[in-house]
């Protein structure tokens, strides 16, 4: 087991929640209404983002030099991630500060586009060849699912009555996608190369993994039963995503762990 990289867990999950909220907001504003609540929702988005970014600094050995991380846009997805995250943060800040633009769908769509940039670059950053199980589209898929799930979940707090069912539908869909992804991935790994197989075993033996799946299962059951998203549910789901992400970092086996062994 590697480190669970708590700062990275915070950053990725919170930023994905923020991006998901922005995406859901864009969807809802485009489907009509929603102008009024804009500012509070943007405040939450910006807050999550600030919390995530601050958290992320803790994983740097030298946080004060963080701005230097923008200097290798040429090949480093991490530089790109930082850039997108910064721009996204800027949009959120603008929305909070300038009340008159907060409600504009265009702003939400701009934020969404930048947010997807964050998710894509994070997906690339955490998909290195050194982690064979994740050296594919899975990280991006996991991250996008988290974004949609959390976005729809927390978005339900802000959705007008009329758009609530849309949030519930998207939320339920994301839970199902998440469950399928997380159930299938380790099983597929088990029949892959040695380090993939080790990763599959590590995930299936991990408390993080099962706790996360448990939360998703509860979310599905509740959403199914109530045909709604109770106000507490997004908070539970957030905790579930945090736990799942901790497992993502802690239980994924690095190729270097098996040097001298079969690959």
């Amino acid at each position: 087991m590697q480190s669970m990289e708590f700062p990275l867990v915070l950053f990725t999950v919170l930023s994905q929640a923020a991006i998901g909220l922005t995406l859901m907001r864009a969807v809802r504003t485009t489907s009509g209404g929603e102008e009024a609540a804009g500012r509070t929702e943007w405040l939450l988005i910006a807050g999550l983002m600030v919390a995530g970014l601050l958290g992320s600094l803790f994983h740097l050995g030298h946080p004060l030099s963080a701005p230097m991380a923008l200097t290798h846009l040429g090949t480093a997805w991490l530089s790109r991630e930082v850039l997108f995250a910064g721009l996204f943060m800027g949009v959120a800040a603008l929305a909070v500060v300038a009340g008159n633009v907060a409600g504009k769908p265009a702003l939400a769509w701009l934020g969404t586009a930048l947010g997807l940039g964050v998710i894509l670059s994070a997906g690339m950053t955490y998909a290195p060849p050194a982690l064979p199980a994740l050296n594919n589209a899975l990280p991006a898929a996991f991250f996008l699912t988290s974004a949609v799930l959390l976005g729809a979940g927390f978005g339900s707090w802000f959705a007008d009555e009329g758009l609530r069912p849309l949030m519930v539908r998207i939320f339920t869909g994301a839970v199902v996608v998440g469950l399928v992804l997380y159930l299938v991935a380790p099983c597929v790994w088990l029949s892959g190369g040695e380090v993939m197989r080790m990763t599959g075993q590590a995930w299936l033996a991990s408390g993080f993994y099962w706790a996360h799946l448990g939360v998703l299962a509860v979310a599905l059951a509740v959403a199914w039963k109530t045909r709604d998203i109770p106000a507490w549910l997004p908070v539970l789901v957030l905790i579930g995503e945090l736990v799942g992400r901790a497992g993502f970092f802690a239980d994924t086996v690095h190729t270097a762990a098996n040097m001298g062994g079969l690959y």
């Binding site: 050995g61 991380a69 690095h254």
Partner: peptide, 15 residues
């Protein structure tokens, strides 16, 4: 120059 982000450590397949 390093800021200790750990990205190279995670990414080099040879550890």
């Amino acid at each position: 120059k390093c800021i200790g982000c750990g990205n190279c450590i995670r990414s080099c397949p040879y550890g």
